[in-house]
């Protein structure tokens, strides 16, 4: 029973990053607070993981101000969407091949 783990992107190895991508896959945009609530992580932790995904160009960041308070919105890029879908496919195949 050989399983290829190629195709599993490193960016998705982490639970928080996988969570961010999952949430953004079904929401056009999400702000920092919402992401934090869903993932139940600290500000610093979330910011680090977001930065990593940003560096991969998987997510897009839009900064703006609402009532003079900074509001940052995140969305998935086309590249991120493709990578996430590929990741799902690989996961699916691994599980199928082990059955």
């Amino acid at each position: 029973m050989k399983v290829s783990i190629d195709g599993l992107h490193k960016a998705f190895e982490n639970r928080v990053r996988l969570g961010i991508m999952s949430a953004l896959a079904v929401n056009d945009t999400l702000d920092f607070t919402s992401l934090k609530e869903y993932l139940d992580v600290t500000d610093g932790n979330l910011a680090t993981h977001i930065k990593k995904l940003e560096k991969e160009e998987f997510i897009d960041v839009k900064k703006s101000f609402i009532d003079n308070k900074p509001n940052t919105k995140y969305s998935m890029t086309a590249k991120g969407k493709k990578a996430f879908e590929d990741h799902l496919k690989v996961l699916e195949n691994i599980i199928k091949s082990q059955k």
């Binding site: 639970r15 996988l18 969570g19 999952s22 949430a23 896959a25 079904v26 929401n27 999400l30 919402s34 869903y38 993932l39 799902l88």
Partner: peptide, 9 residues
């Protein structure tokens, strides 16, 4: 986890 996050969010 992916599924649950998609649903919850």
């Amino acid at each position: 986890e992916i599924r649950s996050m998609m649903e919850r969010s």
